[in-house]
Design a protein around this nucleic acid. Structure first.
Length: 669
RNA sequence: GCCGCCUUAGCUCAGCCGGUAGAGCGGCGCAUUCGUAAUGCGUAGGUCGCCAGUUCGAGUCUGGCAGGCGGCACCA
């Protein structure tokens, strides 16, 4: 074995150093400035502590704050350790468990001392202060390799039962590393870490909130007390992040919904939306658009019952798996006796539909279907109810009553791939029309509890993969990812995700290739050979639900919807009351042209009117004063614009009609 | 469903160590007819989320419930 290693530096030069030289020493040999800035080193794709000896050849780089993504991950991981150390110092008897870096910071899960109860936000300032103390003490962080059994024994002796359980599950004989903070605190950790706590900026982190979190994500196990923080390389980054959060709060769809008078919620219908006239105008515009797109893509539209006998849900399998989340109603005449419950529950059980597919199969089964009839693309703007857990409800994003742009494509095996590819193209075009250039594509694979054979699942999963590849969406640009265990009980799911204002991602579109439900619900068609065959059923949605999609749409546009979607497309505002008649005439012209417009004749200054309609995010404001009334013109101002343009009423009507034309209709011209 | 926090006027919020509630915006009225992001003056508006308890006395303290918010778990 050679006693030198050959390192290739980022600039392409290479150098040989004695085997066992540390990363820090190599950095020093390159330059003293670099050595001071060094946070860790990278050998090939592995990030190593500065004091780790280099034992093999490879591409070598010194990580500094310039390598932002990797540096942030290191720093956040270190903040998590400092958090754990601080909590154990302040609250002796606290058990440490697990604490990774996250998207914008870090968290750590603790089991608080017996009798103390979970940590609360009131504890955070003291913990932050202790963290700063540990950072200022500049404690060296030192890696140490342990024998697994010795470590388990140590954790047990110290009452760290969660750590002991964790270590016991690591493979026998595996090298386990711990990191010491100074000489008096340690945690089991794979690393890497900065050389010392003093490399953290004591002013670049903040503890943000506390939360409960199950140990190993399992509700059957103890609930731990999680502390979240955000952490950065320096104070300026932290402040920029906090500013971004404030900006995100301003575009929260729940806030915009109230400000723009679109919808509200109240306890009488928890988790269900009260759509106001303007919110429903947006809904209707979106629905009309989707209906045109589906019509053009060869779909037929149906409408199916809201309540169905439980028997049909038993046949489909939903009753077995999702009964706890269904609204179930007895088919019974309620008693009028006072003081008695209105129903006894003795009648047949019905359920509000949680989804549309079993009803669509019932339509498919009416009459015999020939292979020549396929594909049948059966769409429904189906209103569904699901009894979601209370803690899951979240504005428009997660509700108990919702309407899907749902459809089921009944097709032959040989049509599946083309149908999926066509669907992805349609979805892509719809998202672009609605202002979304970026979305993530994920494949949710077979769950533990499922119907159908492994062979069927193999084929169904492969079909979706093939279609994504054929559609050209299997790339990092589309956030391509496979999610094991996350599919539906009857089929794998191709999922399309969009991101909300504060970075949470939500599934909107989906397509699922299902052979299980056609079997369970006995859907057949007559093939070319005269025999009965099972169709494949593609469950698919583009918006997902109108509720969630409108929520994301509002956040994406920060409420400033393009004119074709805006509930109020223009306001005609007067400057003096002498212009009232002219303003009303202009509004009549615009309404006759099918536009959504309002007149503002209030005895208020134009400044106030401009301000209020701007805050209400009306895309176009037309002001009329004496001059416009006399000349038959309007002064047009765009939302967010500075000046205004005077144009004739005819020109304004034509211009606004063009501005407000939905993108699909624009393409048709 | 689980953990933590929150709930005071239409909205946003203040209200100390327990002594019968306050601001701004909005609403309403009057004046003002004004040229592109807040005209002035006046005025009304509250079972302090709900139910119990402690207390001479509860917006304030305690318990329960409901709803909301942030996570966790769930998401056909």
């Amino acid at each position: 074995m050679a006693n030198v290693v050959r390192l290739v530096l980022p600039d392409g030069t290479s150098r040989e150093v004695p085997r066992g030289t540390t990363g820090a020493e190599v950095a020093r040999s390159i330059g003293p400035g670099l050595a001071r800035a060094a946070l860790a080193v990278k050998l090939d794709d592995q990030v190593l502590d500065l004091d780790r000896p280099i034992e093999r050849d490879g591409r070598f780089a010194v990580l500094t704050a310039q390598d932002e993504a990797e540096a942030l991950e290191l720093v956040r991981h270190d903040y998590a350790h400092v958090l754990a150390e601080a909590v154990q110092r302040l609250f002796p008897g606290t058990q440490i468990t697990f604490g990774p870096a996250t998207e914008d910071g870090f968290y750590y899960d603790f089991a608080p001392p017996p009798g103390r109860g979970p940590f609360t936000e009131a504890d955070l300032p003291a913990i932050e202060e202790e963290m700063r103390r540990i950072i200022r003490a500049d404690k060296p962080l030192r890696r140490e390799v342990w024998d697994r059994d010795a470590l388990i024994a140590k954790w047990r002796a110290e009452g760290e039962h969660f750590k002991a359980e964790w270590a016991a599950e690591l493979p026998e004989g595996e090298e386990i590393t711990v990191y010491w903070s100074g000489e008096d605190w340690m945690d089991m950790c794979r690393g890497p870490h900065l050389p010392s706590t003093g490399r953290l900026d004591p002013e670049a982190f903040r503890l943000t909130r506390v939360a409960g979190a199950y140990w190993r994500g399992d509700p059957a196990r103890p609930q731990l007390s999680r502390i979240y923080g955000t952490g950065w390389l320096n104070r300026a980054q932290l402040e920029a992040h906090l500013a971004r959060l404030e900006e995100a709060a301003r575009r929260d769809h729940r806030r915009l919904g109230a400000e723009m008078d679109l919808f509200h919620f109240q306890p009488e219908a928890q988790g269900s939306v009260f759509w106001h006239p303007k919110g429903y105008a947006l809904w209707r515009t979106l629905e009309a658009y989707m209906r045109r797109r589906l019509d053009a893509a060869g779909y037929v539209e149906v409408k199916t019952p809201q309540l169905m006998d439980a028997l049909q849900w038993q046949r489909s399998g939903h009753w077995g798996k999702f009964r706890a989340n269904m609204f179930v109603v007895p088919d019974e005449v309620p008693t009028t006796d006072e003081g008695r419950p209105p129903v006894s529950g003795a009648g047949r059980w019905m359920a509000l539909k949680p989804m549309n597919c079993p009803a669509h199969v019932l339509i498919f089964r009416q009459g015999q279907k020939s292979y020549r009839d396929l594909p049948i693309r059966m769409a429904e703007f189906g209103c569904c109810h699901r009894n979601e857990p209370h803690g899951a409800l979240h504005g428009l994003m997660r509700v108990r009553q919702f309407t899907q742009d749902d459809a089921h494509i009944f097709c032959r095996e040989d049509q599946v791939e083309a149908e999926i590819v066509a669907f992805i193209d349609l979805l892509d075009s719809v998202y672009r029309d609605l202002g979304f250039e970026r979305y993530a594509v994920k494949l949710a694979l077979r769950p533990k509890e499922r119907y159908g054979t492994d062979a069927e699942w193999d084929r169904a999963e492969q079909r979706l993969r093939d279609a994504v590849r054929a559609a050209g969406r299997m790339s990092p640009e589309y956030g391509w990812e496979e999610l094991p265990g996350e599919g539906a009980f009857y089929a794998p799911k191709l999922e399309f995700h969009l991101t909300d204002a504060i970075g949470r991602t939500w599934q909107v579109g989906t397509i699922q290739a299902d052979t299980v439900l056609p079997e369970r619900l006995d859907a057949t068609y007559i093939g070319e050979d005269g025999e009965r065959h099972r169709p494949v059923m593609l469950h698919r949605a583009i918006l997902g639900t109108f509720e969630r999609f409108i929520g994301i749409l509002l956040e994406h546009h920060a409420g400033r919807l393009p004119p074709w979607l805006a509930p109020v497309q223009a306001v005609v505002a007067t400057i003096v009351s002498d212009a009232d008649a002219h303003a009303l005439a202009v509004v009549e012209r615009l309404k006759a042209a099918g536009l959504r417009v309002e007149a503002d004749l209030r005895n208020e200054k134009i400044n106030l009117k401009v301000r209020e309609h701007s805050l209400a995010k009306v895309p176009i404001l037309a002001a009329v004063g004496r001059r416009e009334a006399a000349q038959g013109t309007v002064a047009v101002r765009r939302l967010g614009g500075q000046g205004q343009e005077e144009m004739s009423v005819d020109a304004f009507v034509a211009w606004l009609r063009a501005e407000a034309t939905p993108p699909d209709l624009k393409r048709r011209r």
